[in-house]
């Protein structure tokens, strides 16, 4: 489904995107994600297609706000049946509760259900009306990490079974990574859309890079082009990056590398030619355990954040003060084509 919407209030927004399967809409807080959803549901005035000018009652759009908005004095069954008409509405509602695994809770009121269960009731209620488009606002924000992954997978399964285009708003890159498509909202417009892997590995702008978790971003000057890449000078270091075909020598750019893509050079393993170009002597300043990974800060000509899986750190045994070498694979040195700050 193609969406083309323009909002003036409460903020200016121009959104052009495709909702294909489970599509994530990623953006920082205040970027207008929720406003776009509300406009699509008909709850905020907007121009564009589809549904232009229709009141919410006449759009076939399922909308789940963050708090799920279940009717507190209705049981789970009555909540689902709220969207249905006809004599068999309760039977249909029960069938929907069964599909989200909550049939046995049909007589419970919302406050007797957990957050995850409330969400499934709300999802069943939205799906029961057979919408053409489903809108989910931060469906995982109120859930703990374990429930979060399962919830996203459940949602993905349900909407795929239904073949229902679904737009899921999130600020969490880990949630976005589990979707079929990813659109990023920045400065009032959709700046990039593609499959999550592409957006994560090749963010179009600096802002998107930071949003999807690039910890290491630096300014650089283009020195010269060579074959399929460019040589850069950044903080006194010469680096080779792939791509950058449109860049001219002398031009200022930003580049970045994801913390999990910085490689630690091991003395016993020679580096391939190209990787050897971007070697950098550094000193380990800090090693911090973050769940199942280690966050390591190294300082040399550049200060870099490095994320190491536990098994790598178990082998390398890095500690603060240790002198090591890191290598930045040219394919992972990412050049940002736009959205650069002027300073």
């Amino acid at each position: 489904m193609e969406i083309d919407y323009r909002l003036r209030h409460p903020l200016k927004l121009e959104a052009h995107l495709r909702v294909e399967g489970l599509t994530a809409l990623l953006g920082s807080s205040g970027s207008g994600k929720t406003s776009l959803l509300r406009a699509l549901a008909g709850l905020l005035p907007a121009e564009g297609r589809p549904y232009a000018g229709l009141p919410p009652e006449r759009r076939r759009v399922g909308y789940l706000p963050q708090g799920y908005a279940l009717v507190p004095h209705m049981t789970a069954l009555e909540n689902v049946a709220l969207a249905l008409k006809g004599p068999r509405r309760r039977t249909h509602a029960l069938a929907w509760l069964e599909r989200v695994g909550l049939a046995e809770f049909h007589h419970h009121r919302p406050w007797e259900l957990s957050g995850g269960q409330q969400q499934r009731v709300a999802l069943a209620r939205a799906l029961a009306r057979k919408p053409d488009l489903l809108l989910l606002d931060e469906p995982t924000s109120a859930l703990d990490a374990a429930t979060r992954d399962r919830t996203i997978d459940d949602i993905a399964r349900l909407v795929r079974e239904e073949g229902l285009p679904t737009l899921l708003v999130t600020h969490d890159p880990l949630v976005a990574a589990r979707c079929d498509s990813l659109a990023v909202l920045e400065d009032g417009e959709v700046r990039q859309q593609g499959d999550p892997e592409t957006v994560f590995s090749r963010p179009a702008t600096l802002g998107i890079a930071q949003l999807v978790g690039f910890g290491n971003v630096f300014r650089a000057t283009v020195l010269e082009r060579e074959e399929d890449g460019v040589w850069l000078e950044s903080e006194g270091v010469r680096l080779f990056a792939l791509g950058g075909a449109s860049l001219r020598p002398g031009q200022a750019v930003h580049w970045g590398i994801r913390p999990e893509e910085v490689m630690i050079v091991r003395a016993d393993r020679p580096l391939p030619d190209r990787l050897a170009r971007n070697r950098l002597p550094v000193v380990v300043r800090e090693v911090a355990k973050k769940g199942l990974v280690y966050a390591v800060r190294v300082e040399g000509a550049l200060t870099l954040e490095v994320l190491l899986p536990r098994h790598v750190q178990d082998r390398l045994r890095l500690f603060a003060g240790k002198a090591i070498e890191v290598a930045l694979k040219p394919a992972y040195v990412h050049l940002f084509s736009s959205g650069l700050p002027s300073s």
Partner: peptide, 15 residues
């Protein structure tokens, strides 16, 4: 009364 509940009821086609 949570206004959001009424809004969602609208999107569910409740007049």
């Amino acid at each position: 009364v949570d206004v959001e509940v009424l809004e969602v009821a609208r999107t569910l086609g409740v007049g």
